[in-house]
Design a binder for these strands. Structure first.
Lengths: 152, 152
DNA sequence: AACCATATTCGAAATTTTTTCTAAATATAC
DNA sequence: GTATATTTAGAAAAAATTTCGAATATGGTT
């Protein structure tokens, strides 16, 4: 599939605001409404666009306490890895989970309402997962930047 | 503003797929199309919904190399903090930046195409920022989970 | 350069969705 | 219990998306 400069610009715009009309986009791209429409469908079908979502204000819904958790597994065998990854992905509080190089095996981004909710999460959910060795938590004092926009 | 169980469900649906029509949402919520419409407008105006975006597949656009960077400032004075935060937020490769408690001051989530692009980013952009003391990079082997959906 | 096959583009029409409007129903406050 | 908002619903209007056929451009081949 061809993916030209116009497609790039289109993805740029849609990543910033997906509620723009095709007419608005057609003006910005100097194209017809239909051309914009066809390009978007092409990008969707080719899998460039994974989906469209509403972004919710964390503060408004009282989920404003972010914690990054480093996690080591007791042992690095296949079965433990697969099982841990499957179970951790199910936890709603875990927004992101990465398998890392370096001293720790995993990095989790956890979102809860406050410190007491985090304690609850640790005791009731995280530490009850099988095969976990040690954990190390880092608390976020301030979110300086957070974007879903990928530049390319 | 009142924010009831129906609003919660509505935000849940919109966080997963913002391209659903109000008619589809009205079926899921047992409401009329207009009721859904009014609730969405209310949530937008009250700031619960920050915006609507398209999510792009990292692999497709060849930006699939994630690095978490810990950063220490040379000194923790107001001027350095403000200046660093302003400058780091401008960098396109930096998707997220957090001011942290603990051993390191900041945690950055950096997205680039590959290791050589990361080296370029470190040398040309990150380490040229003023007031940076030390950095420590952790490379992502695998993204186990990544969601923009906040559960509440 | 001429040719073909494939892609993309355009404008108009058809369809669908959003938005507005009015009135009825429901809830809230006094 | 009555008055005042707020929410809801259905219909109509406005706007957007989607489809369609034809024109234009693009890339590869001879």
């Amino acid at each position: 599939m061809v993916f030209d400069a116009t497609d790039k610009k289109l993805l740029e715009f849609l990543q910033k605001d997906s509620k723009q009309t095709n007419k608005e986009l057609s003006n910005k791209l100097n194209l017809s409404v239909t051309a914009v429409y066809e390009r978007i469908k092409k990008l969707e079908k080719a899998g460039f666009i994974q989906g469209y979502v509403a972004l919710v204000d964390k503060q408004k819904v009282e989920k404003n306490f972010i914690v990054f958790c480093h996690i080591k597994l007791v042992q690095h065998i296949q079965e433990y890895v697969v099982s841990f990854e499957r179970e951790v992905a199910k936890l709603n509080e875990v927004l992101e989970c990465y398998h890392l190089s370096g001293d720790y095996d995993y990095l989790l981004k956890v979102l809860v309402s406050d410190m007491s909710a985090f304690r609850e999460f640790m005791v009731k959910k995280l530490t009850t997962l099988k095969h976990i060795g040690s954990t190390h938590s880092m608390f976020v004092i301030n979110e300086v930047k957070h974007t879903t926009v990928i530049n390319f």
